[in-house]
């Protein structure tokens, strides 16, 4: 369980035994790493943008009206782009109270079910996000502010992020199924 801080430094999970799954995992890890780098830049940029809006209003008497929405878009992007990365380290917290009580075989079945249902949900959510993106793109939807940036931008980030998350869970499930020895994926 990790909340608020990292309880232990992330260990690089051993690559899956199956060659195809291992290759796909390596590829996804690269993508996740890249998205994490981009998100770090976006987070610092957001802090700059919000600070700039204060400075600009008070020192240059030139209020900005785009800082809130620009920040919202960037942070929505950060959240969804990094959710697969967090999942790759099993960083989405859950109540693991049963883990120690169940016999190993039953526990393995439980973990499999959890991953399967999570993957199904995320796949469904990705699909509906892409539809939302499509709608916003076709209708040219924007937010209703003065700045009025197009809504397809955050929707696309949400859809892409959830799709990568789905892939991540599917790969973790496949790894668990194909690994020769039982171990945490």
């Amino acid at each position: 369980m990790s909340h608020g801080i990292e309880l232990e430094p992330p260990r690089a999970a051993a690559p899956p035994d199956n060659a195809v799954v291992a290759a796909a995992t390596a590829l996804l890890n690269k993508l996740n790493h890249g998205l994490m780098m981009a998100s770090m830049v976006a987070l610092v940029l957001t802090a700059f943008v919000l600070t700039y809006s204060v400075v600009s209003r008070y020192f240059f008497h030139a209020p900005t009206d785009w800082q809130d929405e620009a920040s919202v878009f960037m942070l929505v992007g950060v959240t969804f782009f990094c959710t697969a990365y967090v999942q790759s380290q099993r960083g989405h917290i859950g109540i693991e109270a049963l883990a120690t009580l169940l016999p190993p075989r039953v526990n393995a079945a439980r973990l499999f079910m959890v991953d399967l249902v999570s993957a199904l949900f995320c796949a469904f959510f990705s699909w509906k996000s892409w539809t939302l993106f499509h709608e916003a793109w076709v209708d040219g939807q924007t937010t209703s502010s003065t700045f009025a940036p197009p809504l397809w931008i955050p929707y696309a980030m949400m859809a892409a992020g959830m799709t990568i998350l789905t892939l991540q869970i599917v790969l973790q499930t496949l790894a668990r199924m194909t690994n020769k020895t039982e171990r945490a994926a």
């Binding site: 608020g4 994490m36 987070l43 950060v78 959240t79 989405h92």
Partner: peptide, 21 residues
Amino acid sequence: DLSPILSSSIKESTMLLLIIG
């Protein structure tokens, strides 16, 4: 120097914001 700070912040907030959403 900054990347461990930024990445751990992002990991925590991603986890939290997904729960919040």
